[in-house]
Nucleic acid binder design. Structure first.
Lengths: 184, 184, 184, 184
DNA sequence: CATGAATGAGGGTTCATTCAT
DNA sequence: TATGAATGAACCCTCATTCAT
């Protein structure tokens, strides 16, 4: 007799709804009480589904990234040439820019709160998943190029966080595209 | 007014010593009590010289960046051609990599703790000072290129924070140099 | 009414299984959720059979003591002389030392959690049952002697809780036996 | 420039005042908020002087026992013969019965909350100090007799906790005195 | 100028209990 | 009869900040 509500489904619902709260407040400023209230549940319920604040956060980041990467892969396979796929990828990134920016913001903040390398391992995991996606679809000769591309994208996003007025992400994307064309 | 001079000198001393504490613990985890103890003063004394935790932090970041940028400019003027100056700049960055990394880490963390755009303005200021330095000495045709270069550097540093094992900063720097050469 | 029988039988089962959990964790540290899980039921089921945590605890203590005292009485009637019966009693106590120690530990802990004298009455009840057993079988001239003997036993057990390394219960039991012989 | 208030003296004050609160409520039911309010300070102040609830509790028990034992020793040296000293000791115990009872109550409760043997070591320490006092002044032939005497006293006190109406401590003390006389 | 005692709101977390299914 | 999701008050503890000395 499974529960009257599907435990796992409810978990996912809560996680999905959590993202916007964490994105708005940041990791540290998002309190369990505030999160619970925003989700329309009690703190007890939150602790019924998750082991603690960290657990909610990490599970949420994992879920969101899993969805993003799956979605990106689904789009990328429609491109025929590497050139096509670069277009598809850049379009995808442009479409999810807000999410990605929020993601990096809170991921970096979480990173700062946890000196323990073990509790950061999942961050490296996710980072590599993105790099791997680039590597798989863009036919880089050298694996290091996928990492450089990751750096470029991350840098553009962070630079805009630091100085929102001066940085135009599309200007950067255009530059990246040009640099990659020169490479080939 | 020697008192004033002493006051300012003491402030600078305290700020210089503060950096390593903030760099080690991060903004949030660095408590005023802990900071005071590490500086060998009481919390009361800290509050005598600064208006609060934020004030210490911002003043420290400003002082450190002022020194770094002044130092970079002093070295850059020794280069004759833009090519020379690029070499000098990259060497300078390589030499101060640890400091720059710590700087970005805590700056981004602070950024997350303060939603108020006004209290982030000084961050944009400093960011632009770096961009301006690039622009002044590297003879970019287009001002946007200095911003892209800033993004590249920041991205490399952040990417390494996210996944320390996979990212080699020197590999990235080499790539940047090559990309810039192709441009010209 | 077989339903009633089943109900009571289930209650007793649950109580028997509860003792080891309470004995291991103590009253305060034993949570209803943990207890339910250890018993293989849900918290709802636990609340179906008992009015709450206190009710489970008190019922369990009562059941266990009832069994212990009945068992002791059964053995004691086999002794012919008071001397015999003292031997039987000490042997019985030695055999159930662990249970008795756990019993005193958690009973005293419960005692501390409930200032209300009314909710402590059952504790006094049980205590007197032991004293009564001593009185009935050991032919003390003075009823106060049974109470003193109870104190001696309880004291030995508690002393060992306080300082496990220094106290040897058998040393104490031997002393008690000697003291009682001197009396007679 | 020492602090305007003597740190250690204030600590002792707080500890002395803490005993009655812990004695009234017990260890678990005595909350830091409640304790702070009863002491007329804020929780922050309590944490300024002590590392946490355990630290307050342990320090308080230690201080109180230190005073009790010192006081007992001071009285005991006035007795000429062992007989005298037994009288002095029993009188001392009778005078401090309430304190001793409270002490055992909360010490045993604390014991239950801390499975870790290391965090119980101080309890054994204190127990042995009492035993050592008995041993020093009552001229027992065998060191085990001092331990038995400790058990007798502790047992009487605990028995009275379990069944306040039936147990008369003076009846027990009288019995103890008689038993010891028979021994010699 | 310098001290550190004092504050108290707010943090993450726990858990006995209830109740719709 | 049995489930486990949901509650929310209360726990211990932290820390930026103030202020009397």
């Amino acid at each position: 007799m499974p529960a009257k509500v599907d435990h796992d489904a409810r978990r996912k619902e809560l996680l999905s709804a959590s993202f916007s709260i964490f994105a708005r407040d940041g990791y540290a400023a998002c309190t369990m009480r505030g999160l619970a209230k925003a989700l329309g549940v009690s703190t007890g319920t939150l602790y019924h589904y998750f082991d603690g604040k960290d657990a909610v956060f990490v599970a949420m980041i994992r879920q969101l990234n899993g969805e993003l990467i799956a979605s990106a892969n689904a789009e990328l396979v429609t491109g025929v040439t590497p050139e096509d796929r670069l277009q598809v990828l850049l379009a995808f990134l442009a479409r999810h820019l807000d999410q990605l920016q929020a993601l990096i913001r809170i991921a970096l903040e979480y990173h700062r709160h946890h000196g323990d390398p073990a509790s950061r391992a999942w961050l490296a995991d996710i980072t590599r998943q993105y790099v791997h996606t680039f590597q798989s679809h863009l036919s880089f000769e050298d694996p290091s190029e996928a990492r450089v591309m990751m750096s470029l994208l991350v840098g553009a996003i962070v630079h805009q966080l630091l100085d929102a007025e001066s940085v135009d992400l599309f200007e950067h994307v255009a530059w990246i595209r040009r640099a990659l064309s020169d490479e080939s």
